[in-house]
Every structure is written in C-alpha cells, then in structure tokens.
Design a protein around this nucleic acid. Structure first.
Lengths: 221, 221
DNA sequence: GGACGCCTCGGGGGCATCCCCGATACCGCC
DNA sequence: GGCGGTATCGGGGATGCCCCCGAGGCGTCC
C-alpha cells in the first residue's frame, strides 16, 4: 500500500477557518495534491468518501461534533484513509481523544510549512507523527491504561443500586438470561426479575438491552 | 522540572556491548555528561541509584532481565529518572514492552550522533521521542487497548456478515428493539428478525443480549 | 439459464422479558 | 412498635425475542 506516498499524496483539509485552510493550501501546494476541503463534520465525511484522499488534515475542534466524529464516521466506510490531527490545542484530552478515535498523528498549528509537508508524507507512508510533547500525553495515557487502574470514581447512578442489584446487573450485562442469573446466584428467577426491574427503574432505562449497553459503556463488566 | 535540560544533561548508559558504549560516549561527550554505565541489569539499577542521571540510555536486550527490568526497578526508588530506549530491535513487541514499562522514548541504533544528542535533550526536557515507524506500533497497541478503534484489522467474524446485517447489528447492540430497528431502517419488523437470526447463527450466539455484549466488546457501536 | 446469496416479508409458536399486583422476612432507625 | 429499605418469592398478562417454516425479487458468477 504505497498510495502515492513517495509522490504527491492526495490530501483533504478539514478546518472551520477559511483563512487557515488557505494558508495550509498555499504551503502544501507544491508538495501534495489538495483534493478537497470542508469546514464542518457532515460535509467532511461526505466529501472524504468521494475524493478518496490518502491523508486527511483535521482540526480537532469543529462545528458539528469535533474531529473524532469525522474519523469515526469515515473509518466505517473507508478505513484506509489516514488522519493527521492539526490543531491549536495541545491539551492532553484533545490529543488522547483524537488518537483513540484513530488518528495517526497530531501536530500543532505552530508547525512550519516544510515540517507539515514532511509530516503529511510520513503519515501517507504509514508512519505516525507527533510533536514530541504531545507524544508524551499518549504515553501517559497508555501507561495509565495498561495496569488496569480503572479509577475508583464514584458513579452517582451506580450508587443508587444495592449490592445485590449490582451483582445482578453485572451478570445481565454479560448476556445472561434471568434463568442463568438465578442459577448463578442460587435464587429464584422471579427474584432476578424483581432486581432487574428495580435496576431499570433506578437507572431510568426500559429494557435489559439498554442495560447491557449502559453497563459496558461504563466498563462494569 | 528543568533538570539541566538546557545545559548538559546527566546521562547513564546501559548496554551489554562495550564497543557500542564507547561509540555512544564518543558521540555524546561534547553535548552531555556521561555519569556512568553498566552492562547488565543489577549493576545498572544500583549505579543509577547512586549517580542520579537525568536520562538513562537503555538497550532493550540485556543479560539479567532486559531493559524493562531496569526501568521497573529504578522507577520504584527514583521515579524522576527518564529512560530512552536505544536498541537494534524495531520489533513491535520490544517497543511496546519497554514503553509499557515506562520509557519516554525509543530510537534505533541506526540513529545518527546529532539525532541522538537531540533525542537525549528532548527526553531530558520532558518530551517523548520516537522513530516515526515505532510510534506507529505504540499507537496500534494503544488503539487495541482502548478498544474501539481496533484498527484496520479485518475481523473474520465480522466479515461473514452482510452490510445490512452489520447495520442491524449496530442498532441492536445499542439497545434498540426490533421494532425500533425496523423503523430506523424503514423495513418490516419481521425482516429485522430475519437479519438478527442470521447474525446470531453466523456469530454462533444464541440471544441478542450476547450480541450486545459481543458488539460492545469489539466497540462496533 | 440456473445456482447462490442477499434483502424483503409472513404465519405460528415457545420462551424471555418486564410490568402490574401481591406476600413474608430481616434489619436498622426514631 | 411503626416505618423504610432490602431480599426473597409468586400470579397474571402484555409484549419482545427467536426459531421454525415458507415466499418472491434482485444481483452475481459460472
């Protein structure tokens, strides 16, 4: 997969500031082929699908959902497109969010033209590119994830539940039927129903499927 | 925390090849202060504790446990010491292992003298330094962990499903009822049932609850 | 043209889910 | 001793879920 990486990569530009796009275009025009641009999420997703770029230069803060939204939407239909985040922000949460979404690099807008050209070529060639300070954020997040230190955060929603209800919730979220939960906990199926009803009421949900979704979202499984 | 980052950082060298250490010393001697060296794990841990370096240049493959062992041992007593892995290996597992242990950078021994000097200074200053290709490994591992971005890796299980089945799966996994899915996709509830049955059969699951669990595990939502 | 897969529906039936209404029992609190 | 919360059960019923069987249309591949 050397999609023009050595030559002029096809680049798509997503940023809500017209002037900034113009600046990037001017800096890059000799080294890459700018195949399109957009200033908000929906238009970006649609156009990227049409223009088939090698690399998408993407601002993190966008009207309509942010850069992550673009990445997530495009990945589904065109997973081969590579994203390079290009943002004024150097906040760790922004960097992490966009990397988690699947960006292959993150540079700040303080970057010089030649450096940006180099970064685009690297990303097009399959490398990852980071401003060194920002790479540190990713490392921190990585290190924080691996030991499984899931933070003892107190969830007010979860706090309403009794211990028994939490046990039931855990098993239900794993896909157990009421009967299976009953067997596992050595209680009657009817009792499981009662607990589930209580959990659904307390969490303001209506079906056990939403419960599974709710629980896995919070990593309670 | 600018522990001599601007001047001559104190550097400690860990590598089991004497000749290589000599080479690094020669290349770095004008730009950094080499405060000690070691050729195996135990000696390295002990001497690092005594010499108090800013940065430890560390080979990944070492007699006595490997570079990770050094990092883990030193972190306990002197967490402010920064590690820069310097290795012939560019294997993903080596990179990941040493990053997980806590290294703030990873460069290969193919690096030039000036580049190495720059890398040492950056790490001393708090930045992270990576060869671009190696940074990609970390990103992949990160994405695989955070689960959700699971990479361009094509899931053989998911591959069996038709596009329509995947659409249905996505909605079901979100907690939609058949009726809601039907409305969303503008098809009959019975058709949704058919699709779900096909999905369950292909994925060898038996209930839609397991399906929700399966999907959220793989972050297909 | 026929085989095959996908998408679209339907009938019917068994079981699961979730609600309503009850009940008994334990435990801590005022 | 009441009062509230939790845990344990049950009947009954509406709905959802999942499977069995069937069907026609549409596209691709040989």
């Amino acid at each position: 997969m050397s999609e023009g990486a050595a030559g002029r990569p096809r680049v798509f530009l997503v940023d809500d500031h017209h002037l900034f796009r113009a600046g990037v275009r001017a800096e890059l025009k000799d080294a890459v082929s700018v195949v399109g641009e957009a200033d908000e999420v929906d238009a970006a997703v649609e156009l990227i699908g049409e223009r088939n770029p090698d690399v998408v230069l993407l601002d993190v803060h966008l009207p309509g959902g942010g850069g992550q939204a673009v990445i997530e939407a495009v990945r589904a239909s065109a997973p081969e497109v590579r994203f390079l985040a290009l943002s004024v922000s150097d906040a760790p949460e922004d960097v992490i969010a966009v990397i988690r979404a699947g960006a292959r690099g993150y540079v700040t807008k303080a970057i010089s033209g030649p450096e940006l050209i180099d970064a685009v070529h690297r990303v097009a060639g399959g490398d990852a590119v980071f401003s060194p300070r920002l790479a540190g954020f990713v490392l921190d997040a990585f290190a924080a994830l691996t030991p499984g230190v899931a933070a003892p955060s107190v969830d007010p929603e979860l706090d309403q539940l009794s211990t028994r209800e939490r046990e039931v919730l855990r098993l239900i979220a794993r896909g157990y039927t009421y009967k299976e939960v009953a067997k596992e906990l050595s209680i009657a199926t009817k009792t499981v129903e009662t607990h589930v009803s209580a959990v659904l009421r307390k969490l303001q949900l209506s079906t056990r499927h939403q419960l599974t979704y709710w629980a896995t979202e919070r990593r309670l499984v």
